[in-house]
Design a protein around this nucleic acid. Sequence first.
DNA 1: TTTTTTGCACTGACCAGTCAGTTCAAAAAT
DNA 2: ATTTTTGAACTGACTGGTCAGTGCAAAAAA
Lengths: 213, 213
Amino acid sequence: MTIRTMESSTTSGGRTRREATRQKLYEAAVTLIAEQGFSATTVDEIAERAGVAKGTVYYNFASKSVLFEELLRHGVGLLTASLREAAEDTARGGGNRVDALDAMIRAGLVFIDRYPSFTQLYVAELWRTNRAWQSTLMVVRQEAVAVVEGVLREGVDNGEFSPEIDVQLTAAALVGMVLVAALDWQAFQPERSLDDVHSALSRLLQGRVSGRR
Amino acid sequence: MTIRTMESSTTSGGRTRREATRQKLYEAAVTLIAEQGFSATTVDEIAERAGVAKGTVYYNFASKSVLFEELLRHGVGLLTASLREAAEDTARGGGNRVDALDAMIRAGLVFIDRYPSFTQLYVAELWRTNRAWQSTLMVVRQEAVAVVEGVLREGVDNGEFSPEIDVQLTAAALVGMVLVAALDWQAFQPERSLDDVHSALSRLLQGRVSGRR
DNA sequence: TTTTTTGCACTGACCAGTCAGTTCAAAAAT
DNA sequence: ATTTTTGAACTGACTGGTCAGTGCAAAAAA
């Protein structure tokens, strides 16, 4: 008599069927919620766009809110990993902290370029209060911002940055700069290249706005 | 028979009664929608918080969406006026364009400090698509951003700013910087003073982040 | 008098969540 | 090799509740 382990069947891709379904639901939910907001998006819509029955949503997620929360965790996890990688690569490559910030700006832009809907949705929900997923959101936000703060702090410690800078506020401002510029880019001049946008932000970061040859 | 013009009766303050009611409804709606979002906020809630009957909401506004749209127009109008004033005052006072940008940053912070809920709500709705008030939002957004763009453009024209800067993107980035830093301030370190926040942002604007004595 | 507000009952559309039943591929039995 | 069983995954009609918006007569304000 053969013993059956969990994780029974796998599809050709090696992922369980369940995981594939959840992925489809994430993808459907992210665009709809980005467009309309959480409350205005119905579970029926999500199911329809994902090509599954409504019951399947509830088979895979305890509730609409839980689906959304896991979606947030998943997405911000990707961003944080990407930022961290950019910072570490720069450090390994012998770059200074300004280079690290620059690399993170680029990583942020790449992320937003790849997942514009997620970014939209994230910004829209971030500063709300009194919502079920509020605490989840704060946790993942902090993880991402902490990467930027870390680089700033290292820069202050080794003298690359002025000790007068306010690490927390500056980190928030940098994130905001990238976030809003990128959303603007997507919404109003999507034809521009990432490099183009990146160099405009680099210039701003390095204070090369005031006119000098 | 006396001919009665519009704007009929006025209260002691000189405002019509109707206007006072609408103002109360704006104030009630703005905090509720900032907290919960448009769809999750009910007309009954708005009426209750404003201390009026539900019927009064519909006597004063054609629908929930219309109430919200007029709220947006009203709020962004205040911001735009404030930014414009800051820029003009600087010009009159003989300041250069960097000073003008700095003054606008301060004006932005003052606005956000005074109307945090409105700011929250505005950010949450700005990048949504497929919503009824989308076009209204684009128009008022453009009015506000145009003020910043105007100052940048003047600075480029008279040589204060590098001709290489991308006016549109830089304006968006500056707005984002202030917006996100200010929301962060409100949410996570509300005890800090406006001056404190302002100087941190000034430093970033003038590229005084990299360590120099 | 005219305008504005109130209070409250009502409607109809919409929607989150449920549940009894179906599907099907892998495992077990024969 | 063939048949039977199992159970995870999925389905979609249904339910109970919610909410935008209406209607209206009476009161209050101007």
